[in-house]
Amino acid sequence: MTNSDSVLPKTAVPAGITDPVASARAELKAALAAIEIKGNVPRRLEQASARTAVRLRRFADRNPLGAAAAAVAVAATVGGLVWAIARAVSR
């Protein structure tokens, strides 16, 4: 079985590497992939917002009245915060 056939994540080091140079390269490649995954904040935010959108759509499909009530509550909360901030700034 070759690396292309296996289902290793990008951050895993393949087992069975006997050459120390190849092992070090594989470890470095895995470490850099892990850093890229953890450090890429815009990509992580995009993935999190996509997951949230899917959850919200699923909730709205199952409970349209609850989704409408939640939307009204969020709008009222945001409006109240904007009003409180504007009032605090104007004083």
Rank of each mutant, 00 (worst) to 15 (best):
S23R: 12
R62I: 00
V13E: 00
Q47G: 05
A88C: 05
V41K: 14
A53D: 10
Q47I: 11
V78G: 09
A53V: 04
A12K: 14
G39A: 02
V13L: 09
V78C: 10
P20V: 06
E27N: 07
T18M: 15
L32C: 09
L45F: 04
A12M: 12
A68W: 02
A34K: 08
A84Y: 01
A70T: 03
P20H: 10
A31D: 02
A86F: 11
S49R: 09
A31C: 00
V78F: 15
R51Y: 06
L28N: 08
V82G: 03
P9T: 06
G66L: 00
L81E: 13
V78Y: 07
L56R: 01
V72D: 07
A22H: 11
L65Y: 09
R57D: 15
A26E: 01
V41H: 00
T2F: 08
A88E: 02
A70Q: 04
V41A: 04
P64N: 00
S23W: 07
E36D: 15
G79Q: 07
I37Y: 09
R25S: 07
P14G: 08
V74C: 03
R55L: 04
L65H: 07
D5F: 11
L65N: 13
A26R: 07
T52R: 14
L81A: 04
L56I: 06
V21S: 06
T2P: 15
S49V: 05
R58K: 11
V89A: 14
R57L: 14
R44W: 08
R87F: 14
E46D: 10
L45E: 10
R44S: 05
A31P: 01
S6P: 00
T18C: 09
P42F: 08
I37F: 03
A88K: 15
R58W: 10
A75H: 01
R44P: 03
V82N: 14
V89R: 12
A30C: 12
A60N: 04
S4G: 12
